[in-house]
Amino acid sequence: MKKVDTFLFDLDGTVLDSNKLIIDAFKYVFKTKFPELILTEKEYLSFIGPTLWASFSKYEPDRKKVDELVLLYREYSDLYYDDLKAFKGAEELFKTLKEKGYKIGIVSSKMHHLVVRALEVTNLLEYVDVVVGSEDVKRHKPHPEGLLLAAKTLKSKKSLYVGDHPSDVKAGKKANMLTCGVSYSYHKDIIKEEPDFMIDGLLDLLEEKFYV
């Protein structure tokens, strides 16, 4: 009997090697709009995971101005979006999982169309059965709504959620899913959330322990 029938993934920092672009885009926005504000690298790292609105709202209470910051962020990141790369082994993993009969989903704090575009750029879209983006849910990770929506859409009986952020593990546990953290991203404190598994590379997910 299969341990899981569905593999759900976070996108940035888990499937996509996009964290540097995210941080660079935030640095551009803060340098442009808040030149007097000096943030630490730790503060910039904290922006990886939450939605753009959640991150910018910490520094700008006006919703209309937050929308402007988000637009500026996207204008910058759009210049480099087509250069996005997936982490080593991503396409091989997705292809193998599909050949084995597993369902694949992406649950991300990115907007839906940007997730789709990123998957197209990295040649992964054809393997993905469902995408849940930020506007597809009302409550974001660590709330499990996005994961539960993906599992319901795929009629999954048991899912494994793979992510790089502590909120990914929290969301997976709240959704009663198996959880898997990655060691190759920025959030080294993910281990404190005690995921069921930790991997050093995406192809580690092909190990037998995930299937039997």
Rank of each mutant, 00 (worst) to 15 (best):
K3E: 12
D5F: 08
G13L: 10
D17G: 06
D17M: 02
D17R: 00
S18W: 09
N19T: 14
K20W: 13
I22N: 14
D24I: 03
Y28G: 07
Y28P: 05
F30A: 10
K31D: 15
K33L: 06
F34S: 03
L37N: 12
I38N: 14
I38E: 15
T40Y: 14
T40E: 15
E41K: 03
F47T: 14
I48A: 04
P50Y: 15
F56V: 01
S57P: 00
K58Q: 15
D62S: 13
K64Y: 14
V66W: 09
V70M: 07
L72V: 06
Y73K: 04
R74G: 13
S77D: 13
D78Y: 11
L79V: 03
D83I: 02
A86V: 06
F87M: 04
F87E: 04
F87G: 02
K88V: 08
K88T: 12
A90K: 07
L93C: 10
L97Y: 10
L97K: 02
K98V: 06
K98H: 11
E99Q: 11
Y102W: 06
I104L: 14
G105F: 10
S109V: 04
K110R: 14
K110L: 11
H113P: 00
L114E: 12
A118G: 14
L119Q: 02
E120G: 08
V121T: 13
L125W: 10
L125Q: 12
D129T: 01
D129H: 06
V130Q: 01
V130D: 03
E135P: 02
V137T: 12
K138T: 13
R139D: 10
K141V: 03
P142C: 06
P144F: 08
L154V: 05
L154P: 00
K155H: 12
K157V: 00
K157L: 01
V162T: 04
G163N: 02
G163S: 06
D164P: 01
D168T: 00
G172T: 00
K174H: 03
N176P: 02
M177E: 00
C180T: 00
Y184N: 01
Y186A: 04
K188I: 09
K188A: 14
I190D: 04
F197A: 08
M198L: 15
M198V: 09
D200R: 04
L202H: 02
L202Q: 06
L202I: 09
L202F: 08
L203A: 07
L205C: 09
L206M: 08
